[in-house]
Write a protein that binds this DNA or RNA. Structure first.
Lengths: 145, 145
DNA sequence: AATTTAATTTAGCAATGGCTAAATTAAATC
DNA sequence: GATTTAATTTAGCCATTGCTAAATTAAATT
């Protein structure tokens, strides 16, 4: 499952409406077009995007196309986003992020709020380090207030 | 929270990378630009999109901008999508969806698979109903195989 | 086999979006 | 208060996207 493809697919108002409609009922393309005030071609193109993202499976039944929502993909996406949301800030790893060795001992993780933050990294040494475009990834700590 | 705005914000590869980076660490704009191989302006624009969606809050700390991910918005989005994914197909409501009264008695909900589907709605009466462009929203049942 | 019809695809157009480079803003240092 | 510097905004460019209308495809009916 290509998460980006799924996100792009549902981050369009019209396609989200289509998903919502198909989650509730079974509609033929023309009925969708009518509900959405769009041409059938436009709807067909949207359906293709949703199909390509794996969100729909289509099957011809008699004269009519029959689309089914693949709810698993939505469940997976929700889980994926939830995982992202629950991600904790890592401990500072200066060597990986490009801190100067002289600054490393001051690096701390800053979680939420500003309580744990100590002065470091953006001190005078850093500011004088170059022309500004060689600015390295720093260790992400900043001045306490 | 505007769900659509949030979805559009994170359905871009670069912005998703920014989110991921900021969820792990605290980066200044220039460090992000360097990591992503982009101009600072481009990064700033992406940050604005994420801010406008409510995904980030920015605060100036000394020389540097300090961005925090609003994890609540991500949690809410995940829950939202999960709700969507768990949506059950409603029972057929022909009067609402435009079925002809003669067809209503045959309408059924089709959940997953095709087992519960009966012939209805798309029968001969329906096909002869008009020039095709007056095609009403129908009750979404279709022929069994 | 010919016809009818639902759905898809294509061509062309307008709007949107992301990028760079340059100008501007705002805040910290001197 | 002048200078320095990080971040934002703006202007202009190109690629992408969504739309309509028309052409095409594919399947069911006759």
């Amino acid at each position: 499952m290509d998460r980006m493809l799924v996100l792009k697919a549902i981050s369009d108002e019209t396609r989200m409406k289509i998903m919502s409609l198909l989650l509730h009922h079974n509609y033929c393309v023309r009925a969708l077009a009518r509900k959405l005030n769009l041409s059938e071609g436009a709807v067909s193109q949207h359906l293709k995007v949703l199909r390509d993202a794996g969100l729909l499976t289509g099957e011809k039944k008699g004269y009519f196309m029959h689309y089914d929502v693949n709810r698993e993909v939505l469940h997976a996406l929700a889980a994926d986003i939830e995982t992202l949301a629950s991600m904790e800030r890592e401990l500072c790893t200066p060597e990986e992020s490009g801190c100067h060795s002289s600054e490393q001992e001051y690096c701390h993780t800053q979680k939420h709020g500003n309580e744990e933050v100590r002065e470091s990294c953006h001190g005078a040494d850093f500011a004088k380090g170059g022309n500004g475009h060689e600015h390295p990834g720093h260790c992400h700590c900043h001045k306490s207030e």
